[in-house]
Amino acid sequence: MRELLPVLLDRLTAGPVALARVVATSGPAPRQLGAAMAVTAAGEVIGSLSAGCVDSAIVHAATDVLDTGCAVGERFGPADLDDIAIGLTCGGEIEIFVERIGPERVADLADLRASVGIGRPVALATTLTTRPLWRLDHPGATGSWRGLDKDIADLRDAGRCGIVGVDDTEAPRVCAADRPRTFVHTFAPPRRLIAVGANEFVRALCTVAKNVGYHVTVVDPRPVFTTPARFPDADEVVVAWPGRYLEDEMDSGRTDSATAVCVMTHDAKVDVPTLVSALASDRVGIIGALGSRATHDDRIARLTVAGVPRDRIDDRLRSPLGLDLGGHTPAEVAISIVAQLISERNGGTGQPLRDVEGPIHRRVPGS
């Protein structure tokens, strides 16, 4: 839904919009929790909720919601080829909540967009009721809300989306008005990718990584090459010695186990100090270095001379970086690198799907 926020704020200037979000899934599902689609009164559809199998039904539901103002929940299960009913061909189940939003939501959406923009953890709690209530929950928020404050904060702090509370059909002895069934839509700060080097491979990596949600920093000590104009898709372009920069970032707490460091300069006086710093710390996650087999062998030898234990190198360093896709151009290399980042983050194998058993859509660890 991050990408929909500026669009929603823009379309709300013309009138109410129907917002549909995935609030629950079971089994293999085409989209993750929080995936969103908006439908305007003029019939414009922005975003999607599936591979197309349920979107048309949601557009019809959204039209009704715009007319009545009453929110609805829609559930879809596995598709039956002998049944005319709409279903999911992937075999999973999905619950979608559709509500009408108008000018009364502009302030909350603007606040949400601002929080996402500065990387502040925030959760949007929405009661799954006919007339939904909203609450934006930031770290340090005060005041009680529907008896769900701790539940919302726990999901927000874990960076997870989910449903909290109860409804009358599931827990008839608990008053749903006190703890209504509520979707907690969490917007965690984007994962960081620190790309070392100011070259065309890093430029391509910025574009691909940005498109899958990374906050990308380019760092290189050469000011003539390290400029925002050369890296328009980077969030930050820093002129500094990468090893020192990385140590400062780690010491200040601006990196964590979700941070990826990709060293792509092919210059030992830059590569080696950066990798020594990264490998010595647990405050970064994936550590990779681009290069040929010969470059890799030379790099390992230099790291060993610098005092990095060989088992630490073998356990932590992805070198040569990237999956074996057979590509050569900067864009192809960037895709192979980001594919490896995605695979390792989600516990994937990197193999062709036809050669892998089990569900295609795995649950992300911690979700």
Rank of each mutant, 00 (worst) to 15 (best):
A41I: 02
P365K: 05
L136K: 05
V196P: 04
P180N: 14
P365E: 05
H328Y: 01
A289Q: 12
D149K: 08
G326P: 03
E344S: 04
G69Q: 13
A125H: 04
H328P: 00
L109P: 05
L353R: 06
A38P: 03
V261K: 11
T13K: 15
D178Y: 08
G350A: 02
G119W: 00
D80E: 08
G27T: 06
I152H: 00
A278G: 05
D167Y: 04
G347L: 03
G291N: 13
G347M: 03
A339M: 02
E357F: 04
S292P: 13
T182D: 14
T68K: 10
P180D: 14
I163C: 12
E357G: 10
L88N: 00
V218N: 06
A85H: 11
P139A: 11
T126Q: 13
V65G: 11
K150M: 09
D256G: 15
G322W: 04
A79L: 07
F97L: 11
R362M: 07
P273H: 00
L12D: 15
I313L: 06
P330Q: 03
G92T: 07
H328D: 07
V218K: 04
A141L: 07
G140V: 11
D80W: 02
V122N: 12
I287W: 04
L303H: 03
H296A: 11
L290M: 15
D355S: 10
A107H: 11
K150E: 14
D82K: 06
G307Y: 09
G119Q: 12
E332D: 03
D149L: 12
P223S: 12
F201C: 10
A42S: 13
R131T: 14
I335L: 13
G102K: 07
V17N: 08
L81M: 06
S319W: 00
A38W: 00
L136H: 08
V272E: 09
V59W: 01
S343R: 02
A153M: 06
I300G: 09
I86H: 05
S336K: 01
R362D: 03
A41Q: 11
